[in-house]
């Protein structure tokens, strides 16, 4: 080992890992990260499950949400508003971002995506991939033109973020064994809210019933009088809006940099989660989000405590799960055979 301070023997690692304080730290962080991952991947899974559309532009929507949120929170001076004012502002920004990106989603679905339902999947992949590149480059142009990044193409919004986030969110609170930041609590709260909201939409509303029926058998749903096209548009709008909201959450979190590559940084784990959870299964996506969140937290913890001395173990493990899942159970945790096929 090159770093003389780092080496830890197995016994130290076990001691560390089994100490209640450390464990609770990992669990809280895992829940918070899992919540973020759920918000990132929920829209993707809804869109794929119903429409068989692999939306490569999903990450770009999140990146736009993050930029809009960052700009709005800085512009409003949220950091100096006091806790309640700041939270209210964040909430309003979130709502606006949702509506804005949902509207963008409607335009994309009606103007572009709808034209290609009849064609083989590769057409749709190329379209959404092209959309993703276009959106990313457009944002890059805006960022460079406005000199938001002082000439560097990857800007670090961590500094302005401290101004944009009330101090209550950053400070650490203790409760028994558990220590958590306000930001983690908010992330978990929004994760739960996302889960409950989508679950209720799918299971308790008539529209949700149409969505689930359409996921299983599109032809039969149409033959029962369900306007699947309109359902598709609505789902694409909701999915895009959710991607935007995830961006707002990421803009608040100093671990995520608000920059153009954020689009890809979000898209990859979202794909892993959707596949591991089972294509088209919202329950699977929720479980896989938690799983990936926990692993991410464990990897981050291992690095911070010096158990390992290289970064990105979490990434390695996340994609490791994907590989193992594809070998052992290609349909994912809760996937149904044939789901996502075109047969």
């Amino acid at each position: 080992m090159i770093d003389p301070a780092a080496p830890l023997v197995i016994g130290d690692i076990v001691d560390l890992l089994t100490s209640p304080g450390e464990m609770s730290r990992i669990v809280v962080e895992g829940l918070a990260k899992g919540s973020l991952y759920l918000m990132i991947s929920a829209g993707l899974t809804l869109i794929f499950g119903l429409m068989d559309v692999i939306n490569f532009a999903h990450g770009a929507f999140t990146m736009y949400g993050a930029y809009i949120a960052g700009a709005a929170l800085l512009g409003l001076g949220v950091g100096s508003m006091g806790f309640l004012g700041a939270m209210g502002s964040i909430f309003v920004v979130m709502l606006l971002v949702f509506l804005l990106l949902a509207a963008v989603g409607v335009i994309f679905e009606v103007a572009l995506i709808r034209k290609l339902y009849e064609y083989p999947p590769i057409f749709m992949i190329l379209l959404t991939f092209g959309l993703a590149i276009t959106l990313e480059e457009l944002m890059r142009m805006i960022v460079e033109f406005r000199e938001i990044n002082n000439g560097q193409w990857q800007i670090d919004w961590a500094t302005p973020r401290i101004e944009s986030v009330p101090s209550e969110l950053a400070s650490v609170n203790e409760l028994g064994f558990f220590s958590f930041t306000g930001l983690q609590l908010i992330q978990i709260a929004f994760g739960v809210l996302t889960f409950v909201g989508i679950w209720a939409f799918l299971n308790k509303t008539r529209y949700g019933l149409f969505v689930r029926a359409g996921v299983e058998d599109e032809e039969m749903a149409k033959a029962l009088g369900i306007n699947i096209n309109r359902t598709f548009t609505a789902v694409f709008a909701v999915g895009s809006g959710l991607a935007g909201i995830a961006g707002v959450m990421l803009a608040l979190d100093p671990l995520w940099a608000v920059n153009v590559p954020l689009a890809l940084a979000v898209l990859l784990p979202a794909f892993v989660i959707v596949i591991v959870g089972g294509l088209g299964s919202f329950k699977g996506t929720a479980v896989a989000s938690l799983l990936v969140g926990m692993i991410d937290a464990l990897g981050t913890w291992a690095f911070q405590t010096g158990v390992i001395t290289f970064t990105d173990l979490d990434q390695l493990m996340i994609f490791g799960i994907l590989v193992v899942m594809l070998i052992l159970r290609p349909r994912g945790l809760f996937g149904v055979e044939g789901q996502g096929d075109h047969g």
Binding site: L209, R212, A213, E216, M220, A221, K222, A223, I226, V336
Partner: peptide, 22 residues
């Protein structure tokens, strides 16, 4: 197709086509 269904034509298809998970 949904407009045909709305006009009042119902389909009881071969192999029944249940929404199995519903």
């Amino acid at each position: 197709t949904y407009e045909v269904a709305e006009a009042g034509i119902g389909w009881i298809p071969e192999e029944r086509r249940m929404f199995n998970r519903l």
